[in-house]
Computed example of a mutant assay.
Amino acid sequence: MNSSEKQSPGFKRDPVTLFEENEFGRLLGIHITEARDGYARVEMDCTGKCNPHGIAHGGAVFSLADHAFGIASNYGKDHYTAVSVHIQYIAPARGLLVAVAERIASNETCGTYRVIVYEGERTIAVFDGIAFRVSS
């Protein structure tokens, strides 16, 4: 049995395919443009995901950041789950959003990640998350 078979059934396939085919990610139209252990870059068009003021719904922005966080933290051999997240909304957005997640610290049990959401060059939100290792 190889190491990927020891993981939960959902993690037998490569993480990019797993997250790209995820129901919720597909519902929001989130696409992975780059991923590796501790790093992910994903994008989402805000069309159809706006609040009554015509700007990207905070839940959609959060979901984009959380999706990037999940990919970055689960790309390696271990399986992680979020235990704490925080988001700061900086500016409204209407167009194509890009979320870049990077691991900024780790130890034997947890990883800390920062996700920055951009619309072009403009920062839209900053998301910080802590992931707890549930398997290796």
Rank of each mutant, 00 (worst) to 15 (best):
F19P: 00
G29Q: 03
K77L: 07
D45V: 08
G54R: 04
E21M: 12
S73L: 05
A99V: 10
L96Y: 05
S136G: 14
I87Y: 06
D14S: 13
V134I: 15
D45W: 04
H79W: 10
H86K: 12
V126W: 00
S4P: 13
V98M: 07
S4W: 11
A72G: 03
A40G: 01
T123D: 07
N51C: 06
L96D: 04
S106W: 08
K77S: 13
I116P: 00
T109S: 13
V134Q: 11
F127G: 01
Y80K: 02
T17G: 04
H53R: 13
S135W: 12
N2Q: 14
D45N: 11
H31I: 05
N74T: 06
S8R: 13
N2S: 15
A99S: 08
V115H: 01
E102L: 06
E23V: 09
D128W: 03
E108R: 14
C110M: 12
I71E: 00
N2G: 15
G129M: 03
D37S: 12
E119S: 05
A101F: 07
Q88P: 00
F69Y: 09
Y39F: 15
F69G: 01
L18D: 04
H79L: 08
E108S: 14
K77N: 12
R41C: 03
A35R: 06
N51A: 09
R94S: 13
